[in-house]
Design a protein around this nucleic acid. Sequence first.
DNA 1: ATGTAAATCGTAATGATTCTTATAGATGGT
DNA 2: ACCATCTATAAGAATCATTACGATTTACAT
Lengths: 138, 138
Amino acid sequence: MNVSTALRILKKEGYKYTEKREDLVTLFAKEKRYLSARDVLNHMQKNYPGMSVDTIYRNLTLFADLDILEETEWNGEKRYRLSCSTKSHHHHLICLDCGKTLHIETCPMEGIPVGDTEFEVTGHKFEVYGRCGECQAQ
Amino acid sequence: MNVSTALRILKKEGYKYTEKREDLVTLFAKEKRYLSARDVLNHMQKNYPGMSVDTIYRNLTLFADLDILEETEWNGEKRYRLSCSTKSHHHHLICLDCGKTLHIETCPMEGIPVGDTEFEVTGHKFEVYGRCGECQAQ
DNA sequence: ATGTAAATCGTAATGATTCTTATAGATGGT
DNA sequence: ACCATCTATAAGAATCATTACGATTTACAT
């Protein structure tokens, strides 16, 4: 996923192009890590001092719905990062200090026999948590 | 995990026995599924009409710290269920409607090569989500 | 039985997120 | 380029889950 792909998806789905939306996607494209709504607000308010929290949340939710952003949650806050790829299903090793990620290519759902239960399976979550090298060195 | 084990852990760690704490653990022992703080409050206030939300949250957190309860989160609410066992590491298939669970015995961490990264791994989460048979039938 | 620290209550405070209403701005057609 | 329409945004209020606080009650060791 990159900025132009993201904006193309926006247009295709009938949403309007705004400079704030482009900057929002650009921020995620630069950072390539999980950011909280507050992180995003702090970054965005440098260029747009009066930017509303509502705009942040509304666009984060929209982008997650459009699969432009991936969403997760820790320490009571939702976090978002740019979708790594539209192609291959994968999981993450996540630094809980800075939100940096590494890919985990294997998916635990392959080989789990959940089809023979009365459950209708709708999703799954596999995440490994830790601290990256930089954050260990403070 | 059962009620007497839970109360033994409480005592061993120097916490006081109260009727509310016994009833709280008993509730989880009966339900054997994930409950939100609000679920617990509703159940408990039948017997203790004036019970404070603070008491609920304080004890849920305490019990989770003592590994009497397992904690997770979905739809913006923390959820707790009685720890299945003190012995074997496992994961869950969870009904997002009622909190009912099935065990998943295999752990995806076996076979994931995370030791050769600069990350210090501190934890992981693997959960499968769905709807149980009863909830599908409403 | 008594003293003390912990547990609880009632309520206020907090923090993240969502909602509301009025205004501003993007897009498509002229 | 201009206009109409409909979406996006700002500002602030509202909501929801959770935590904090001061006062009171209770468990339990002595």
